[in-house]
Nucleic acid binder design. Structure first.
Lengths: 111, 111
DNA sequence: GAGTATAGGTAGATATTCGATGTGTTCTCA
DNA sequence: TGAGAACACATCGAATATCTACCTATACTC
């Protein structure tokens, strides 16, 4: 009980990951941590969602990956935004805003 | 090109339908029309999404259905919110707000 | 009589997220 | 020195939801 399970809204994960990556090169595990931090523990991104999403985004040419050594001395795959990825992020944010705007219109409708 | 396809965000359709039904008993076809109107043509709910969703919501006890005659003299299945459905709607709206709040935190983060 | 709008519906394809599970390394602390 | 936690990568299958495409039927318009 009291499970504050915060599932990411389907369709928004790509945008969120791209946005975090836009802050600077970061490895997968770090993305999940950062997302949790920034959202004040609201989003707890699962690894089973994270890694497939990263591969998907890389496949589409929105992220590029590079092995480097992390702050903790381990190997990590660092992702950074490609120019195409930056455009994609912009377009996803725009769409997100139009979408939440439309939802707001409906939620505000009074009986 | 220029396709302004507005797909409903997965996970929000139930909330939107419940909200429209909360405005008063309304039949399925009317829900789609109303949603399009209120959202200023942004949402164009497909029948293949609408009807399965209505059945789902009725199965869960959030909507109750009743055949009546529509304004245009046809038979229509009118849906109205049950008390359980009203609670569900409230909880979905609350969740939606926490969710968009968390997304906003991430989108606002500056490099 | 043809076509459009209204009203209901199903079936299959697609996409995405999660939960469970697996590998291996480094660090901490008893 | 050894156990467990945290770090870092990953895959697989189940569950879910939405869409596209299709189907039926009635009423209205031209």
């Amino acid at each position: 009980m009291g499970e504050e399970r915060a599932e990411v809204l389907k369709g928004t994960l790509d945008m969120l990951i791209l946005k975090i990556a836009a802050l600077g090169p970061i490895h997968g595990y770090g993305i999940a941590q950062r997302m949790q931090q920034i959202s004040r523990d609201f989003f707890q991104l699962q690894q089973g969602s994270l890694y497939p999403a990263l591969h998907r985004l890389a496949d589409r040419g929105w992220l590029k990956a590079e092995w480097r050594v992390t702050e903790t001395g381990r190997e990590g795959k660092f992702y950074s935004l490609t120019p195409k990825g930056r455009k994609q992020l912009e377009s996803e944010i725009e769409n997100w805003e139009r979408l939440t705007g439309a939802v707001a219109l409906i939620l505000q409708t009074a009986e």
